[in-house]
Design a protein around this nucleic acid. Structure first.
Lengths: 121, 121
DNA sequence: ATAATAGTTGAATAATTATTCAATTGTCAA
DNA sequence: TTGACAATTGAATAATTATTCAACTATTAT
């Protein structure tokens, strides 16, 4: 008896292959986390912030000047990055400095840069 | 004389730092490509497809069964992945098999998985 | 030819989201 | 305590986009 998928409007062609791949797939929750993680880097403002903070810690105002955006826009994105645990901040008087929290990110971002560098050719 | 950013509603606080970081930033076009690249992985359907194809080449129908989605939905996302040069396909009769195009992606995705694995704790 | 199945496509819908704007908070100096 | 400035916030707007639906193409077998 063929396994029939609820939504896919076809009989499963390569049952065994599908079954084999299925067991290797990460948990659904992990897949969602993975997608959410990439989604955060999938915005030019946020990835710019990450690239900038990769060099130095910067305050909101500096980031605004660097990216030519309002403090508000930057702040909104920083909040998202903070919630995702990608940046940390510290206050020094009126100024709040942001920095990268996870060294891991550097590698992922630079690998991403390598990738687009390759597909440039 | 202070550099005044057009949009950032403040004097630039740490001029020199901003200037230093600015020269290390990638080209704007590259940043956009980088963001677009991550954006593609930043969707649970697409990243699932990538994870699945990382194991084996699969046809549209198989992917639909695996992810419990319609062929149409899968096909739309495959088109995006193909346009981004992340997957290749070959026809065999009525069936079209998709596979990962770039080995590079494996590393990036698995590093992403490591990352979310760490922040789980 | 015709039917059946795999896959694609375009338009429509619904949901998500980045930026703007105005108002507010927090800190420091006068 | 008042003014100035860094930063945050919430609501509104505008743009993007994932999925659905229906119609279509391509290939094979009868």
């Amino acid at each position: 008896m063929k396994i029939k998928s609820t939504l896919c409007d076809c009989e499963v062609i390569h049952e065994e292959t599908v079954a084999e791949v299925r067991v290797t797939m990460p948990e659904l929750e992990d897949i969602n986390m993975l997608a959410d993680f990439f989604k955060i880097l999938g915005d030019k403002t946020r990835v710019s912030i990450m690239l900038a903070l990769d060099k130095r810690e910067l305050c909101v105002c500096d980031l605004g000047a660097l990216l030519n955006m309002t403090k508000s826009a930057i702040s909104h994105q920083l909040k998202i990055l903070k919630k995702a645990n990608l940046v940390a901040n510290r206050r020094e008087g009126k100024v709040i400095f942001y920095s990268l929290k996870d060294q891991h990110i550097r590698d992922i971002v630079s690998q991403g840069l390598e990738h687009i560098g390759e597909s440039d050719e």
